[in-house]
Computed example of a mutant assay.
Amino acid sequence: MFFSAIAAEDEDGYEKQMTKYQLRRWWFQVHKWIGITLAVLIIPLSLSGAALVWHDALDGAINPQRYRTTGSTLRTPGAYVAAARARLGPGERLAMLTLPEHGGPVTVAAAPARAPDRPGPPQRTMIYLDPPTARVLDVASSAAGLVRFVHVLHGSLQIPGGWGRMLVGWLGVAMLVSSVSGLWLWWPSVGRWTRGFRWRRRPDTNSNLHHLLGFWISLPLFVLSLTGAWIAFPTFFGALVGQGNPRGPDRMMQARAAPVAAARLPVDVAVARATALAHGKVRSITWPTEKKPDWAVQVGPRSVSVADDDGVAALAPERAGQGGVARLMRRLHSGEGMGPVWQTIVFIGGILPAVLAVTGVIMWWRTRARSGAKPRLSAVAERAPAGGL
C-alpha cells in the first residue's frame, strides 16, 4: 500500500510536469509563428511608431523652413485667416486653423471647393504661419512628404480603404499575445526566476539578446499593443469601459465635407462665443461645412459648437469612443503630453520589437538549419563502411 501511494504521487507529479511542458511548448509555437509570419509587417509598424514619437523634431529636420518662427506670441485668429487667404489656390476654402501648444508654427488647412471622389482622408493644402507676425513660412500638400508617409504607414501600412487600419489593429492584438507568451517563455522552467536575467542562457549571442530584450520590453510592448488595438477598434474596447460608440454621423464623411464658401460669422466672433462658454486655451478652429453649418472650436479638452447663423454656442458632446479612457489610450500610445521619460519608453518600445523580430527569425532559421543537418549526417553515417581496410 505504501509503495502504491508513492507510485501514485510520482505519476501525478509526472503528469503535472508533462502538462506544464506541453503548455510551454504550445506557447512557444504561438510566439514563434507570430514572430515569423508577421515580422515583415511588425518591423515597419514598430519603426514608424518610434519615429512618430518625435514627430515635430522629425518634421523640423526635414522641413526646417516651417519652424523658423520669431517667437510664440499669438495674434488673433483673424490675422492668420487674412494671411492664409492670400495664399489660397483657385477654388480653395479655409477648413481648419490650429494653434501651437508647445512652440512651432500656426497651421491653416484649406480644402477644395468640392468633396473629393476618391476614398480615404481628404487632401488639404497646409499653410504654415509665424505666430507673432502671421508671415507665411511654407505651403505644402497634406498628402506629401516623408512625415505624412510615416503617419500613413503606421496607421494603415499604406493599405487604402479601411483594410489597412483593421490589419494594424489585428497586428496590435498579435503583438499583445506575443508579449504575454514571450514573458512566459522567458520565465525559467527550473530554479529561481532570477536565473532569467543571466546573459548566457543560450550558447549564442543572438538568442541571449532575444531573451533579455524581450523581458525588458514585454510590459511597454503590452501597453503599446493594447493601446494600438484600442485605437483601431474603439467600439469594442469602448464598450468594455462603458464608452461604446453609439450610432451617429460618419466622422470620415464629416471630414470630407467641403467647407462653406463664406461663413456668416467672423472667425474672431466664433472664438469669442466659444471661450465665453468654455475656459482654456484655444487649440483649433474648424470651419462650418456644407453638411454641418457650425463652427467647432476646441478649447482645452472640450469642443464648443457655435452656430454660424445666430452665433449660439453649446458644449459639444464628447465624440463616440473619445471619452477619458480612449483619450488616455491615445496619449499612452503616441507619448504626446506624457513627458520625456514615457516618450523615451515609447520610442524604445518601437525600436526593440523590430530587433526582436529579426533575432527571432534568425533563431528559427538556425534551428531549421541544425534540424536539416541531422538527417544528412545520419545518411552519411549509414553509407559509411562498417569496418576498416
Rank of each mutant, 00 (worst) to 15 (best):
A8D: 14
E11D: 14
D12Q: 15
Y14I: 10
M18H: 12
R25Q: 14
R25A: 15
W26P: 04
V30W: 12
K32T: 12
L41C: 07
A50T: 06
A57C: 07
D59E: 13
G60L: 04
Q65V: 13
R68D: 10
S72G: 10
T73Q: 13
L74W: 01
P77L: 05
P77V: 09
Y80N: 04
V81F: 12
A84Q: 01
G89D: 05
G89S: 06
E92L: 06
H102F: 15
H102Q: 12
G104H: 11
T107L: 08
A110Q: 01
A115G: 06
R118G: 04
P119W: 02
P119K: 08
P121D: 12
T125I: 02
T125P: 00
M126S: 03
A134Q: 05
D138T: 03
A143M: 09
V147D: 08
V150Q: 01
G155W: 00
L157P: 03
L157F: 01
G162S: 02
G164I: 03
R165D: 02
M166R: 10
G169E: 00
M175K: 00
L176Q: 05
S178D: 14
S178Q: 14
V180S: 06
W184M: 12
W186R: 06
S189L: 07
G191N: 02
R195E: 07
F197D: 00
F197H: 04
R198F: 03
P203F: 10
D204H: 10
G214I: 01
G214N: 02
P220Y: 04
P220R: 04
F222R: 09
F222W: 15
L226F: 08
A229L: 02
I231N: 07
A232R: 00
P246K: 05
R251T: 09
A257F: 05
V260W: 00
V260P: 04
A262D: 05
R273I: 11
T275L: 06
L277M: 09
R283E: 12
T286L: 13
K292E: 15
P293Q: 06
A296S: 14
P301K: 15
S305G: 08
D309V: 12
A313T: 02
L315Q: 11
A316G: 11
A316R: 15
E318C: 07
R319Q: 15
G323R: 10
R331Q: 14
E336L: 08
E336I: 10
Q343T: 07
V355Y: 00
A357T: 12
T359C: 04
I362M: 09
I362K: 03
P375K: 02
R376C: 09
S378I: 13
E382T: 14
E382L: 15
A384Q: 09
A384N: 10
G388I: 09
